[in-house]
Structures are given as C-alpha cells and as structure tokens.
Computed example of a mutant assay.
Amino acid sequence: MRRAPLPRPARALAAALLAMASLAAAAAPATAADGDVQLPVVSSVLPSGEPCAKASTDKAEKQPWTWQPLGLSRAWRLTEGAGVTVAVVDTGVGADIPALSGRVEAVGGAGEDCVGHGSFAAGLIAAAPGEGVGVAGLAPKARILAVRGTGTRGETTVGQLADGIRTAADQGADVIYVGRATSTGKDELTAAVAHAARRDALVIAPVVPDALPKDSTTGEPVQRAPWYWPASADGVLSVGDYGPGGLRPEQAPPTDGADLSAPGDAVVSVGPRGSGHYYGSGSSLAAAHVAGAAALVRARHPELTADEVARRLMISGYPDDPPRLDPYAALTTVLTDKGGAAPKQAAAQLPEKAPSGPRNRALAIAGAGGGLVLLVAGAAVVIPRGRARGWRPAP
C-alpha cells in the first residue's frame, strides 16, 4: 500500500523519541532471547539431512521485550480477537500446541510442522498466555487456519504461495499471514492477492526475506532485490522488523517499501509441539505481530473492510518511517471517513448575512426614538425658562 512520508520535523521528533524508547528497552529485565534461558532458534528452511524441529524443553517465564511496545495488557481490555480467523500460509502449524489448543484448523497436511516456522508465527499471532509464562500472541482468542505455503522442509515456490493465499481466502479467513518473501512471481502473486481482496481478506507479508540467499560461488548473501512478493502487490500490508535496540546493522536499508514496522528481532514464541519456547528474528515474525493486531481490529470493528483495517493500522502507528505498530491505538483511534484518512477538523461556519430590510427598519425606528428623546430633553430645559421670563426674548 502506498503511504505519504512523514514531514522532516516529525521524523526528527520520532527519531528522538524512539532513541529514548530503545534506551528504556535496553534497561528492561533480560529476556529469554537475551541469554537468560537458552532457547532453540526457529528456522525458515531446514538444511538437507537435518531432523525435524523438536519440542523445546525450555520456557521463557519473563515477559518478552515486545510487551512494552505492543501494549498487550491495554489492548486486551478491549478485545482478544474472538470470532476472527487468521490464516497462516507457511510451513504448517502443529495441531497439538497447548497455547493454541482447540483453535487450530488445518487444510490438508498443514497440521504438521516439521520446520517450526509456521507454528512460531501462529504463536505470535494467537498463543494464549500460560500460567507463570510471559509469552503470548496478540490475539489469544483468534482462530488459526493452517495452510501449507511451502514444502515440508520450508522450501517454497511462487505457485505454492499463490495457492496458499487463494485457499486461505476461499476458506473464509479474515486475515491472511504469508511467511515468505520472494523476488519473483509478481503476476501470479498479485492475482492471488486480488482474489483474497475480493473476499475481503487482508493479506499481510514481510517486506524482505528473513535472510538473503547466498551466492553459490562466493558463499556471500546475494544483493537485495528492489521488490519482493507478495509484499509489493497492491493491497498487501507489508511489514519490516525492529528489535529491542532498534534496527539490526545488517538490515540496512531495513524497511524500504514497508507500510509498517513491528517487533521481529529476538522475539519468543511456541515451537511446533509441546509447551516449550523458541526464539527468532526476521521481518516474517514482525508480520505475524501485525497479523495478530489486524485480528484484534477486525474483532472490535467488524464493520470495517480489509482495506480500512490496513489503513487504520498504518494511520494509528507510532510516528516513524515506516510507522511502528501500535495495537491499542489501532483499536481506539477515531477516524472520520471511510477511506481511513486522519480525523479532519470541522470547517468554520460563518453566520449567514442578515437581510437588509429589517435592519434598515430597525435603524429608522431607533433614529426616530433617539430624536424624540432629544426633543423631550430640550423641552424640559427650554419651557421652564420661557415661563419664568413671561415668554419675553432673552436680553
């Protein structure tokens, strides 16, 4: 989606405020991803010969750093996403994850997740908070529709992603999270997004891949492509990521073309099975947070279209370039027009010009009355003096 950049003074103010927020986050208690607990790292693709991801035996008991910028406690006072279905087009979602118990519906074989990435993203979207555990998704009462958008080991094609988006839309998903970004497939993925839009489903995708592929000759990451899909398709809400200390150095330029940014660096979520936790980084994980926020908005404002939900998320974001996701503001911001534009000041209404006829008559009456008063006042002075002189002329 296209958006207007912030004015230069606003960007400067936002940068200063964000720097202060980063310092506050750095001073916060250590999280599981900071080394307090050694958690396994989630992968997007499993290398050849590596076994499927196992259930983690460790849990992050402290609240992750993401709670502060996302404001989950305030948002949950308004809604927890009940009644909304979020499709996860990724590696699948484990059907027996306790934090998602009873809320996962799988299409085909998507109820099994060998890689763990789709389960991790689903946890960021909708995991219910556990007793004594600080990890939870943004919409803990939303339903998850698991749709396979990759092979069993995480490898993907344009056709798999496009089919996944179409399937999710046809299954009635309100929000469609896509966990991949590819440099090819513009036409096919744009058509799939248009298919979802006709069914009023909001598609959310990472603006760039979590990791750039490596050159087969040099072993170095290839140069970033100017566009990635489906994020660049019209109607998709594209997302970049940031961490507790701001942007990662290797990200630059990190969020070019993104509509929103959200926490995606060193975030904690569930694994493909069991109640333990993993941690990971990348724009795909930031996109999962935005998908959870979209579920909250659709639950609280069911009258809004998919496009209006996307605009609300962007307009209500914390001022930066791109704006930073603010779920509570997205739930409470009052917009005055159907297009999602910022609230407008009412035009000043000048009183209509009074008719000249009554005004002229009023002036004439007032003038006559004033003249009569003057005549009476003058008579009150002249008449007594005239009587006293016997009406003779004054000397």
Rank of each mutant, 00 (worst) to 15 (best):
E61L: 13
K62M: 05
A162S: 15
A162E: 02
V133E: 00
L145W: 09
G111I: 06
V133P: 01
A162W: 09
V89H: 02
G94V: 14
A181L: 11
R103Q: 07
L124V: 01
E105D: 10
Y177T: 02
S101A: 15
A55D: 10
I176Y: 07
A75Y: 04
T157I: 10
K186M: 14
D187Y: 03
G134T: 06
A87K: 01
R103A: 03
V193S: 13
E80C: 11
A122D: 08
G108L: 05
G94K: 04
A168W: 11
T167E: 02
T85K: 08
G164T: 09
Q160Y: 07
E155F: 14
A181M: 02
G154Y: 15
V193K: 06
A191W: 05
E80R: 15
T157Y: 10
A146K: 02
V193M: 03
V135S: 00
V193F: 12
T184E: 15
P98N: 01
H117Y: 11
V135Y: 02
E188M: 14
V133G: 01
W67G: 01
V104R: 00
A142Y: 12
A95C: 00
D174T: 08
E61A: 14
A128E: 09
D113H: 08
D163F: 15
A106T: 06
G118Y: 12
V88A: 00
K54D: 07
G159K: 10
G151I: 13
R153C: 04
A121P: 03
G109S: 12
R103V: 11
L100F: 09
L161P: 02
A169Y: 15
D113M: 08
S56Y: 08
A106C: 08
L72V: 06
L189S: 12
G92E: 12
G116I: 13
T57K: 14
G111C: 11
P98M: 07
F120K: 06
T91L: 07
G134V: 07
T190I: 10
P129T: 03
G134L: 08
R103K: 01
L145Y: 12
P98T: 08
V158A: 12
V135F: 09
G102I: 04
E61H: 13
G102D: 10
D90H: 10
S73V: 06
T85I: 01
G164S: 08
Q160K: 14
G116P: 14
A87L: 06
W76Y: 10
G102V: 06
D58T: 13
V135G: 07
A99P: 00
F120T: 08
A99W: 04
V84Q: 09
G149V: 09
A168S: 10
G132N: 02
K62D: 09
R166T: 15
S183R: 14
G111N: 03
